[in-house]
Computed example of a mutant assay.
Amino acid sequence: MKNNKHLGIKLWIILSGLIVIGLVLFIISFIFSKGLSSISFNFIFDRPKGMPLGMKGGVFPAIVGSFYFTLIASCFASFIAIAVAVYIKFYCNNEKISTLVHVVVQSIAGIPSIILGLFGYTFLVVYLKLGISLLAGGLTLGIMIFPFIEVRIEKIIDEVDEGIINSSYALGMSKSYTFLKLILPICLSDMLGTIALAAGLAMGAAAPIIFTGGVVNAPVPKDILSPAMALPYHLYILIGEGISIDKAYETACVLLFLLILLNIIVIFIDVFRRVE
């Protein structure tokens, strides 16, 4: 009887895994089959052209803009998330404060991305007078991915053998020394993998930058206070305005390729960690 129950659970797990893998492969193959054959050198390295804008030309400014948005978001979110995680795990001795921090992090994770975009516009663009810019858009994306990074870094630190930490304290080492010299080298590859996954989440988000940093047409940004194009926003415009479904598929292929590349980086980081 027990074996039959276990068999049912195993079949359920295998079937669920196959369904997920099948759906992912179907989505990727469908997007690539629709747009990969039309992608050219000019499409990758040219700017949008035509009337309406986007009927012709390429997406190079959007690729560069997406990279800058993602870089700013990843740096900002990682800096704050690592600090919060380290505080909770090493310095916070008050359970009420720890619970409050976790409630705040979980609440931020539950905020719809479009509302984050509205907050970014109201606070960053208008109140702080950053304007529609890479900085405003990147910071808004950073707020979006902050909970993703913070929760996972806490779990990564939790997985470190407590004996290492206690031994360091027993030898008179400070908490900062213990983290920087012992914990960080052990967790670094996992942390980088988490940040890379969060970067993929930021790169594919359109709603937070619609009001804060993304524009329909802009050259390659010269500084962080310049507005910029972004691949997900450009894709949204192409489909939402009915400009060109072919260009939309080509743009989706480029975006999907970049996201797959980020995931490959995560895999290599994990493999490198295991080899070490």
Rank of each mutant, 00 (worst) to 15 (best):
M1S: 14
K2I: 13
G8K: 11
K10E: 11
I14S: 14
L15P: 00
G17F: 08
L18V: 15
L18Q: 05
I19T: 15
I19G: 05
I21V: 15
I21W: 11
V24I: 15
S29N: 09
S33K: 08
L36I: 13
S37K: 15
N42T: 10
D46Q: 09
G50N: 05
M55V: 11
G58M: 06
F60Q: 00
F60C: 00
F60E: 01
I63G: 02
G65L: 01
T70S: 14
L71Q: 10
S74F: 03
F76M: 08
F76L: 11
I80C: 08
A81P: 07
A83Y: 07
C92E: 14
E95Y: 11
V104A: 09
Q106C: 06
I111Y: 10
S113P: 04
L116W: 03
G117R: 06
G120E: 07
Y121S: 02
Y121C: 04
L124V: 10
Y127F: 13
K129T: 10
G131Q: 10
L135K: 08
L135R: 06
L139E: 07
P147E: 07
F148S: 12
I149Q: 08
E150S: 09
D161H: 10
G163K: 00
S167Q: 02
S168T: 08
S168G: 11
A170W: 05
G172Q: 06
M173Q: 06
I186V: 13
C187T: 15
L188Q: 11
D190C: 01
L192M: 14
A196V: 15
G200Q: 07
I209Q: 00
G213C: 04
G214Y: 03
A218K: 04
K222H: 12
L225G: 02
P232S: 07
P232M: 00
I237G: 02
L238Q: 06
L238N: 08
E241M: 14
D246L: 07
Y249H: 13
V254G: 02
N263A: 06
I269A: 08
R273A: 14
R274F: 10
R274C: 01
